[in-house]
């Protein structure tokens, strides 16, 4: 037994590249004891529900509570039945707009703030700490804060706009179909800008000083150093930020929109997203009865949509980006 172990150990050592650390050779109950609880809880409460949702989406419920095989019927209904399709495409489109606004507003602001912070101004850590505060708050709290501030009843926004002579600009943005989704997106941007800021800031800090010095010796000024040296080096981080924004956009948007605009994505479904559509379908709303199988279908569609995004990221983006190693 012990001989066999040493033998294995030897081959394991030889097989591994010298740089990587040697790891203890396996076998034995302790490995199982260490890893089983995590795998068990994770499998039962995360992976199994996901797989089960995919399975449920292939069945149709009968009035007596039993389920019957329906193949891709639910997906056909969701995509082509006029009532369902309108809601689905509307929600998906709204999610994509939400994603787009985060990409063009949140992430550039995060990049700008991170770039300024990486210049190490005085009070830098104070700015950083304070700017991150909204990110910590519950989406529910953030939603209500902005609902109050934008409310025509309180008039705070009008007063503030008036102070800079722009009072005429004020409208109840959250209540208008044309502006509600943009307003909700900007509230979410306000809350989450701290995340890209921190990630990009960390990436900028990890760039070795020698590279910057070399660029400076070559006569580049601060602005060009940023564009030509730093930005290319942090592209992998920008890729991570983009994919996190994409995934978060399908989950986090529910809390905010449910709190401010309700499960119907008021006004008139203009802020309806996949999350609220899933919630409504699953639990039922007003005249509509909750439907497990259509709910599972919508969740599965979200899964596939996220999967498509992640695949594009992995294949197209990450493969082309050369990661800088310290």
């Amino acid at each position: 037994m012990s001989e066999a172990t040493t033998e294995q150990e030897k081959t394991a050592r030889e097989a591994k590249p010298p740089k990587r650390r040697k790891r203890r050779v396996g076998g034995g109950w302790h490995i199982f004891v260490f890893i089983a609880p995590a795998v068990l809880i994770y499998t039962i409460f995360s992976i199994y529900p996901l797989v089960e949702s995919l399975r449920l989406s292939l069945f149709d419920g009968l009035d007596d509570g039993s389920a019957v095989w329906n193949g891709l019927g639910n997906y056909v209904t969701l995509l082509f039945n006029p009532t369902w399709a309108t809601q689905f495409w509307n929600a998906l489109w709204n999610n994509l707009i939400l994603f787009f606004i985060h990409m063009v507003v949140q992430n550039p602001i995060g990049l700008l703030l991170a770039a300024l912070l990486s210049l190490a101004p005085r009070f830098g850590s104070t700015y950083r700490t304070l700017i991150f505060i909204p990110t910590l708050l519950s989406v529910v709290v953030v939603g209500f804060i902005w609902e109050l501030i934008l409310s025509p009843l309180w008039g705070v926004s009008e007063t503030l706009l008036g102070a800079v002579g722009l009072a005429w600009l004020y409208q109840p943005w959250l209540g208008l179909e044309s502006t509600a989704l943009t307003t909700v997106s900007l509230i979410s941007v306000w809350q989450y800008v701290g995340i890209p800021m921190m990630l990009i800031y960390a990436a900028l800090l990890s760039i070795p000083d020698e590279l910057i010095d070399a660029a400076r010796v070559d006569g580049l000024n601060g602005w060009w150093i940023f564009w030509k040296v730093k930005l290319p080096l942090i592209l992998p981080t920008l890729g991570i930020v983009a994919i996190l924004t994409y995934i978060g956009n399908f989950t986090a948007s529910f809390d905010l929109i449910y709190s401010i605009q309700g499960a119907l994505g008021a006004p008139n479904y203009s802020t309806d997203v996949m999350g609220t559509l899933l919630f409504r379908t699953f639990f039922g709303q007003q005249l509509q009865i909750g439907d497990i199988h259509m709910g599972a279908t919508i969740a599965s569609m979200m899964f596939f949509i996220i999967l498509i995004g992640v695949t594009i990221y992995l294949v197209l983006v990450q493969r082309r980006l050369q990661r800088y190693e310290m």
Binding site: F45, S46, Y48, P49, L50, V51, E52, S53, L56, I247, F250, T251, F254, G275, L278, F282, I292, G295, A296, A299, S300, M302, F303, I306, V310
Partner: peptide, 11 residues
């Protein structure tokens, strides 16, 4: 990569 919320129905 996969939000646990997508399994809500089965959870």
């Amino acid at each position: 990569m996969v939000p646990i919320r997508l399994g809500t129905v089965a959870i």
